[in-house]
Design a protein around this nucleic acid. Structure first.
Length: 402
DNA sequence: ATTCCACCGGAAGGGGCGGGCC
DNA sequence: GGCCCGCCCCTTCCGGTGGAAT
């Protein structure tokens, strides 16, 4: 039986090099190679061209302007910029121009201190984290000291620059004013962000000192995605078992939603798994199944990550919805919520708070809540279900309520 | 035209806690 | 390690609201 199971699983195998479907698992050289191919297929060529125009002064020994790049997540801001800078470094090396760049990753939100810390790590090349409790000025001194002997040009690429949660102004003031004056190396910045309004929240004085150029990465369209997906398919899969239509469908799904390349690859990877469990062939049908199952996974994960009170509220809502033909008012839902709380021996919150939680869950699409006026019988939000049946079952079966 | 239901949702204030700073 | 401030969560209070009922 084991042998048979193994053999039949092998016969349905589609993924030959599954690491190409997951960038996290890809070793660095391979990743670079994949990127090179992507850029050879004329994707993001316009953006590369603009970057090249901005940076061209460096070849004549002039300081390029700072660049601010907007674009939603998964549009290749980071990869494109990194690819460009590494090429630029290569060219400069051949021309004998002293140039280096470093990458400051603020993908996870950080405080001002944390941002300085990342910057320090990126600059002096060490992996050591500075101890907490150092004064900010001292951090700045150390960062300056690390570059005291550097010469030539330095480009600092700051990913998700809007993620500095507290005192972003201090961080940016340092970058814009103090830093360039105190070090011999000529520094310029590339900021990446996915929030268009970021600039408006900044101190206008900083913006004017930065004297930056703007650039926009629009989401990939279906054709770009198709190209990106084809590359992955060629690298990772047994091409003879993949329908062209399936790939087109994935590209269509992803471009219709957000144009996020990461999501497209994720969907591809999921579809491959589905196909391997089923027919051993990747067709449009498998894509549909995978799409649906990603949907379910996402909501289940969202529910798991809810705070206790929020989950109880959600359970209360769906417990009530099950008994009232999927239409209930906030007041009734609140009653059910209280029962759920009692069963879980948790002190229930006030109705006011419950009302806020309902709004929150509506916002995240876990429930549908519309304000309705029933005339003399009051005004209330009418709650109805907006989750797949499978998810609701899982949710209610956890409810210890009769 | 008025009343009145059953909430909505803003404001204000308290308490707990985590992170920044020394 | 310890202190303190700011933030978030929660409660209380209350004026507001759309339309059926009268």
């Amino acid at each position: 039986m084991i042998r048979h199971a193994f053999a039949s699983a092998g016969a349905r195998k589609i993924a030959l090099h599954s690491s190409f479907l997951d960038d996290e698992k890809l070793p660095e050289p391979e990743r670079v190679a994949v990127l090179h191919e992507i850029f050879h297929r004329n994707i993001r060529i316009k953006q590369l061209e603009r970057l090249a125009n901005f940076m061209a002064p460096i070849m004549g020994g002039y300081l390029p302007p700072n660049v601010l790049i907007y674009g939603p997540s998964g549009t290749g801001k980071s990869v494109t910029s990194l690819h460009f800078l590494s090429s630029l470094a290569h060219i400069c090396e051949m021309q004998g121009i002293a140039f280096r760049y470093c990458y400051v990753d603020l993908t996870t939100p950080r405080s001002c201190f944390g941002a300085f810390n990342e910057l320090a790590i990126a600059l002096d090349g060490s992996v050591r984290r500075y101890r907490k409790g150092i004064a900010l000025e001292q951090m700045q001194e150390m960062i300056v000291a690390a570059l005291m002997n550097a010469t030539g040009f330095l480009c600092i690429l700051i990913d998700e620059a809007d993620n500095v949660t507290t005192d972003a102004d201090i961080f940016l003031t340092f970058l814009a004013k103090t830093f360039p004056k105190r070090i011999p190396v000529r520094v310029f910045y590339v900021f990446l962000t996915n929030r268009l309004e970021w600039e408006k929240n900044l101190d206008p004085r900083i913006v004017s000192v930065l004297k930056k150029q703007d650039m926009i990465f629009e989401p990939y369209d279906a054709l770009d995605l198709l190209e990106i997906l084809r590359l992955r398919v060629e690298k990772a899969l047994d091409v003879s078992r993949v329908d062209e239509g399936a790939i087109r469908k994935i590209a269509a799904y992803a471009s219709r939603e957000t144009g996020d390349a990461r999501k497209a690859v994720e969907l591809l990877s999921k579809a491959v798994k589905v196909a391997e469990e089923r027919s051993g062939r990747l067709t449009e049908e498998e894509v549909d199944i995978a799409e649906h199952s990603i949907e379910v996974d996402k909501t289940e994960e969202l529910i798991r990550s809810l705070a206790l009170q929020q989950r109880l509220a959600l359970q209360g809502c769906y417990a009530g919805l099950g008994k009232h033909r999927n239409r209930i008012s906030t007041g009734t839902a609140f009653e059910y919520y209280r029962q759920v709380c009692e069963a879980a021996s948790v002190r229930p919150l006030t109705q006011r708070r419950f009302s806020d939680m309902v709004s929150f869950m509506d916002l995240y699409g876990l429930i549908c809540a519309r304000v309705m006026s029933k005339g003399r019988y009051g005004k209330t939000r009418e709650l109805s279900s907006s989750l797949p049946v499978k998810v609701i079952e899982g949710l209610v079966s956890n409810t210890p309520i009769a």
